[in-house]
Simulated scan of single mutants.
Amino acid sequence: MGERRVVVVGYEAAELLEIASVTSTLIAANFHSRRPEYAVSLATPGGRPITTASGLVLQAQETLEQVVGPLDTLVVAGGIGHLDAVSNRLLIAHVRRLARESRRVASVCTGAEILATAGLLDGRRATTHWQWASTLAFNHPRVAVDPAPIFIRDGNVSTSAGVTSALDLTLAFVEEDLGPELARAVARVLVTYLQRPGNQAQMSMFTDAPPPADTLVRRIVDHVAANLREDLSAAALAASAGVSERHLTRLFLKHLGESPGRYVRRARVEAAANLLATTSLPMSAIAARCGLGTAETLRQAFTDRYGVAPSHYRRTQSAQASA
């Protein structure tokens, strides 16, 4: 087949890294295929240069209003400028028009807000950067917003999380179009993971900010992180805190949005993910160190959380795999 025509929609204060993650990945695919697989262009309102969120200026190759399909893929970038872009009725209308003329439609980060405003996410599951997920859900109640995955594909419409998740989504497109071997070659050139699973969680709870505002909850959370292999049942945690199980559960639901049991399970699985990616410890040792007991319990809990087996996660996410 001929070149796949890909148009990336940008606007004032769009995020440069989100645009470049898409375009650079596809151009790298062209290089490794040794033929022009993708014809990639940046389209902006009026065809004007845009000053990205980082302050650098990008020159457009196409005028958004003049782009005519058919297109293989339409990608809408995110960035702080999306707050103004969703109010640009012409931009929204042309995104809606081009989506009808595209085989595949995608957004990066807060570009999901633009797709949603155009009505393209109604009745679909979608994701966006975790910081903006609640806003997307509030503004667009007909969209089933899931803030956890790196990207979601629902039919021919894909949405991805913040910034570098554009790499993961675009690598998934390359693998779909050109096969896993070429996708692996592109990932090596970009010095990135082959491909993080789309349903991998966006962020670790151990880097999440801010910590719980409640002093008691914060103390218990610190205790959990430092004692994963110990008894962390609700009864044990309540006894440690000097409160009833019922009261502890109320505090966790209020400040963390989940019960003590679910929080502990998540803490253990995320700790296991870190050990899988950074050590060569056997599964049984990781399970014991994280308080999950057996390798089979680790496998079940890990698959529930990430949607992939621990062995797959280690193959694709370890330092050795990305070398």
Rank of each mutant, 00 (worst) to 15 (best):
121 L>A: 05
123 G>R: 03
123 G>Q: 03
123 G>I: 09
124 R>C: 10
125 R>N: 03
125 R>E: 05
125 R>M: 10
126 A>E: 09
126 A>L: 11
126 A>V: 13
127 T>R: 08
127 T>F: 12
127 T>K: 08
128 T>P: 03
129 H>K: 07
129 H>G: 06
129 H>N: 12
129 H>T: 09
130 W>F: 14
131 Q>I: 05
132 W>A: 15
132 W>H: 15
132 W>I: 13
133 A>C: 01
134 S>D: 15
135 T>Y: 03
136 L>Y: 00
136 L>A: 03
136 L>K: 01
137 A>I: 04
138 F>W: 11
139 N>M: 14
139 N>T: 10
140 H>E: 12
140 H>N: 15
141 P>D: 03
144 A>V: 12
145 V>P: 04
146 D>T: 14
147 P>E: 01
147 P>D: 01
148 A>H: 14
149 P>M: 01
149 P>I: 04
150 I>W: 00
153 R>I: 08
154 D>M: 09
154 D>K: 07
155 G>Q: 04
156 N>D: 08
157 V>L: 04
157 V>I: 15
158 S>M: 05
158 S>L: 07
159 T>P: 12
159 T>L: 00
160 S>T: 08
160 S>E: 03
160 S>P: 13
161 A>P: 01
161 A>H: 02
162 G>D: 00
164 T>D: 00
165 S>Y: 05
165 S>H: 05
166 A>I: 04
166 A>H: 02
167 L>Q: 12
167 L>I: 15
167 L>H: 13
168 D>F: 09
168 D>N: 12
169 L>T: 11
169 L>H: 13
170 T>E: 10
170 T>L: 11
170 T>C: 11
174 V>N: 04
174 V>E: 04
175 E>V: 08
175 E>S: 06
178 L>K: 02
178 L>E: 02
179 G>I: 03
179 G>D: 01
180 P>S: 13
181 E>M: 03
181 E>N: 02
182 L>Q: 02
185 A>L: 10
187 A>P: 12
189 V>E: 04
190 L>V: 04
190 L>D: 07
190 L>K: 14
191 V>R: 09
192 T>P: 08
194 L>E: 14
194 L>T: 13
194 L>V: 14
196 R>H: 01
197 P>V: 13
198 G>K: 00
198 G>L: 00
199 N>V: 06
199 N>F: 12
200 Q>G: 07
200 Q>N: 12
200 Q>M: 12
201 A>E: 05
201 A>N: 05
201 A>T: 09
201 A>I: 11
202 Q>G: 11
202 Q>T: 08
202 Q>K: 08
204 S>N: 13
205 M>S: 09
205 M>G: 07
206 F>R: 13
206 F>M: 10
207 T>P: 02
210 P>R: 03
210 P>T: 00
210 P>H: 07
212 P>V: 14
212 P>H: 14
212 P>F: 14
213 A>E: 14
213 A>H: 12
213 A>K: 15
214 D>T: 09
215 T>I: 09
215 T>R: 13
216 L>I: 11
217 V>G: 09
218 R>L: 01
219 R>S: 15
